[in-house]
């Protein structure tokens, strides 16, 4: 398998700020790779390093085996879909898409044909003569995508491309982007702060925090087996169990994570299955959310545990005493607190 993008101990400092701090990373060819993290975690700077808008302060970078330090953006076979789309307002949609071919000196007939083909690919075949200002947000997003894809890049960079779209459109575009990536076989590097987006689309996810990569792995790895407390917290609001509580519930004495939906509750005098770990708790808040109800339950040590239960299970009142229980294998032991 060819390595598309390779970071070796890459650092990027802005004055005293360590935006990217000693990142080592390999992205394989044809992979859908997501960079996930809170804002200011260095994920966008990593994307800009690949695009060539930033140069590393130290470290070594390769794109398809070619050293990329000092190579300007216009000499890289990498294209970007910008967060604000950055379409050229003074050009028609077709001219926007044909721009990359025009500056490379492709003749007019060829570049217009290719631009038209790419517009058709993103289902905007009949919009070529419009201006970007006459399109909706979702359509602009597709134009930005077509404008990048027409250059047949080896790596496509997407900087929070779905951030400006409404929920329904965003879900639809997630499916389309994933299908597009499968069909074209291009390496996609996708930056997002939305964990749902990263988990549903990516082959592999890198979790960023404070300029460093905390964990790289498949969506299942990241979600089921978070390495640190930060990952457990950031990806899907997991419960982080203190070493003392883990032990009292019948596990080893170390930090552990427990997904809210893995916890069952008992309201009456039923008995928990003996192979389960359990704890007594008091409901402090109950939020009905349609198909599920989210509960905050305070355990005897004072910690709050989040629980997600099917709403069909019954009604829950604040102050009600319940028993939480979960299978042993649902508890994931973590390395540390970081």
């Amino acid at each position: 398998m060819t390595t598309a993008v390779s970071f070796q101990n890459i650092c990027r400092y802005f004055g005293p700020v360590r935006a990217v701090d000693d990142v080592t990373l390999d992205i394989a060819e044809g992979e859908f790779f997501a960079m996930l993290g809170p804002s200011g975690s260095g994920k966008t700077t990593c994307l800009r390093l690949i695009a060539g808008f930033e140069q590393p302060t130290s470290g070594h970078m390769e794109i398809f085996g070619v050293t990329s330090e000092g190579v300007p953006p216009y000499q890289r076979n990498v294209n970007t879909v910008f967060q604000d789309y950055a379409l050229f307002p003074h050009m028609t949609v077709l001219d926007n898409v044909a721009y990359g071919l025009m500056v490379k000196g492709v003749d007019k007939a060829t570049r217009q044909r290719k631009a038209q083909e790419t517009l058709t690919l993103v289902a905007l075949g009949s919009f070529g003569s419009r201006r970007p200002s006459q399109l909706s947000g979702g359509q602009r997003q597709r134009v930005a995508l077509a404008r990048a894809l027409v250059n047949e890049p080896k790596v496509l960079l997407l900087d929070e491309p779905l951030g400006a779209l409404d929920l329904k459109l965003r879900e639809q575009m997630q499916v389309e982007l994933k299908a597009l990536q499968r069909n074209l076989g291009i390496t996609f590097v996708f930056v997002t702060h939305d964990q749902g987006e990263a988990l549903s689309m990516a082959d592999r996810v890198a979790i960023f925090n404070e300029g460093k990569i905390v964990q790289v792995g498949s969506p299942e790895d990241i979600y089921e087996r978070p390495k640190t407390k930060f990952v457990a917290d950031f990806v899907g609001s997991s419960n982080v169990l203190s070493p003392a509580f883990s032990k009292s519930a019948g596990g080893p004495e170390s930090w552990a994570s427990l997904r809210p939906e893995k916890i069952s509750i008992m309201q009456g005098k039923e008995k928990a299955p003996t192979w389960h770990q359990s704890a007594n708790a008091t409901i402090t808040a109950a939020h009905y959310q349609g198909s599920v109800t989210r509960l905050n339950a305070r355990i005897s040590s004072g910690e709050t545990i989040n629980v997600t239960v099917p709403s069909s299970q019954g009604k829950f009142a604040e102050g009600e005493k319940i028993i939480l229980h979960w299978p042993k294998e649902a508890v994931h032991i973590m390395a540390g607190e970081a």
Binding site: A51, G52, F53, P72, P73, Y74, V78, N79, T80, F82, Q83, D84, A86, L87, F88, P89, H90, Y99, G100, M102, V103, K104, R147, A148, N151
Partner: peptide, 27 residues
């Protein structure tokens, strides 16, 4: 005007002069 437009132009393969002529000047 959005600064990312100039970056977009460079990203699509235009050098400084082409970016000025095709993107900045019309703006």
């Amino acid at each position: 005007t959005s600064g990312s437009m100039i970056e977009a132009s460079m990203d699509l393969g235009a050098d400084g002069f082409q970016t000025f002529r095709h993107v900045v000047l019309p703006q």
